[in-house]
Computed example of a mutant assay.
Amino acid sequence: MSFSPQSRVWIYQSNRKFNQTEEVEILQKLSAFTNQWKAHGNELLAKAEIRYGFFIILTVDESQANVTGCSIDSSVRLIKEIEQEYNVDLFNRFNIAYKIDGEVKVQAKEDFETLVNIKQITPETIVFNNMVQNLADLENKWEVAFKDSWHSTVFAHLL
């Protein structure tokens, strides 16, 4: 099934990498959810995936039915259940994900700031922009060089 580039996306970043067993279990929960996800009785064309073992990504193609506040609430409830069951933090926006040698790492904002300070994070380091809103941006603007990201404005004083 193909999704419109304008499909809405929600990205939830874990503070730690899921192990293989967790990833399989979480994907089963997400799949069961997206298969019956509805908005005002209309089935939503939705999918869920986990990327890099850290990111839960929900995608909804609104060309069939629009997402409603209630349907978004139900997805947030599911993510909170996953958070509790697996003892991870999926809502902390101050955890920053980046890639070093192709490996994803997540640090608290203060630790990330230290890494920028000591030049472990360079302007070329890939960071993740979890604020992307649609599938096109997920594919093109999610993984970006630090210098081209919103992160660089937050940490501009260190560059």
Rank of each mutant, 00 (worst) to 15 (best):
N15I: 13
N95H: 13
F112C: 13
V67T: 11
Q84D: 12
K147E: 10
I96N: 01
K80N: 13
F54D: 02
F91C: 06
L158C: 10
R77D: 14
N129T: 12
L138W: 03
E49C: 07
P5A: 02
V76A: 13
K141I: 03
E103K: 12
E43K: 15
V76S: 13
I50Y: 05
V60K: 00
W37P: 04
S74C: 08
L44F: 14
Q107Y: 07
S63A: 04
S74L: 04
L58R: 02
P123E: 10
K29S: 05
T34Q: 04
P123W: 06
V154I: 12
R8N: 07
L78T: 10
Q133L: 05
K141S: 15
Q107P: 05
G41A: 02
D101L: 10
Y12F: 15
Q133E: 07
L78C: 09
E124D: 14
L58V: 06
N42C: 12
L135Q: 07
Q84K: 13
G53R: 01
P123V: 08
S74K: 10
E85G: 01
V144D: 09
T153L: 09
F128N: 00
Q64M: 09
S2Q: 09
F3N: 00
F91Y: 00
V9D: 00
S7K: 09
A97V: 03
S71N: 08
V60N: 06
N129V: 12
S63L: 08
N66D: 15
N66Q: 10
I11W: 06
S31H: 15
K147V: 14
E103M: 09
F55D: 04
E22P: 10
V9Q: 01
S63G: 08
L27F: 03
V76I: 15
P5S: 09
T153G: 04
K109E: 14
N117I: 14
L30C: 11
N87S: 12
K141R: 14
K105M: 03
Y52H: 09
A108E: 12
F94K: 10
N95L: 02
K80A: 06
N87F: 10
Y98F: 13
Q13K: 02
V127F: 00
V9C: 04
D137T: 03
T122R: 11
S4E: 14
Q6L: 11
A65D: 03
F3M: 01
Q36M: 09
K99C: 04
I118N: 09
P5T: 00
I82N: 12
K147D: 13
F54W: 00
A145G: 06
E110R: 11
E139A: 11
T122G: 03
S74N: 06
N42A: 14
E62Y: 03
V127P: 06
E22W: 08
I118F: 11
